[in-house]
């Protein structure tokens, strides 16, 4: 039975409320989502976890029609600037893949959804951004 849930990426934290956690450089405050060797901005070696704002606005998008085999297309790839200034890439969801339906600058919020189940019944949870209804 699908009793376990696992985040798609380590920087997605599901509990208590889904949110992203960046690695923040202690010295300069630069934020990263990957495993770090040192800071790409200042060279600092020390990092602390920093929760990322779950709301933000749409800085850029592309509606991808031609994707790799196995990838469902079209989908909307989005660059979101979170409310605290952190840049995040994810799909824009809960909106049709139609440029007429997507406004640059529109407010968005982080949402999660199931993105597959493995052979042992563990469910993968992905995140995306959805428009905030006015």
């Amino acid at each position: 039975m699908a009793s376990e849930r696992i985040p798609l990426v380590a920087y997605l934290v599901l509990e208590p409320e889904p949110h992203l956690v960046a690695q923040q450089c202690v010295r300069c405050g630069a934020r990263f989502f990957d495993r770090r060797n040192a800071c790409g901005s200042c060279g600092g070696r020390d990092f602390e976890p920093a929760p990322v704002a779950v709301t933000g606005h749409l800085r850029a998008f592309s509606i991808v029609h031609r994707a790799a085999p196995g990838v469902t297309a079209p989908f909307v790839s989005a660059i979101v600037e979170a409310g605290d200034g952190t840049t995040v890439r994810a799909n824009l969801v809960e909106v049709p893949p139609d440029p007429a339906e997507i406004q640059l600058g529109m407010p968005v919020r982080l949402v999660t959804y199931p993105a597959g189940t493995d052979s042992e019944g563990t469910e993968c949870i992905a995140f995306g951004f959805a428009p905030v209804s006015a």
Binding site: A10, A60, R66, G70, T72, A73, S77, L104
Partner: peptide, 30 residues
């Protein structure tokens, strides 16, 4: 490096060239 459990292509946006440069242009449009 991102602690991913499966491919994120098409789930966390795109890293394909037409999309990346599409986003770069749309950011300018923004």
């Amino acid at each position: 490096r991102f602690g991913s459990v499966r491919s994120v292509d098409g789930l966390l946006g795109t890293k394909t060239m037409p999309g990346v440069f599409g986003q770069a242009g749309m950011r300018y449009a923004h």
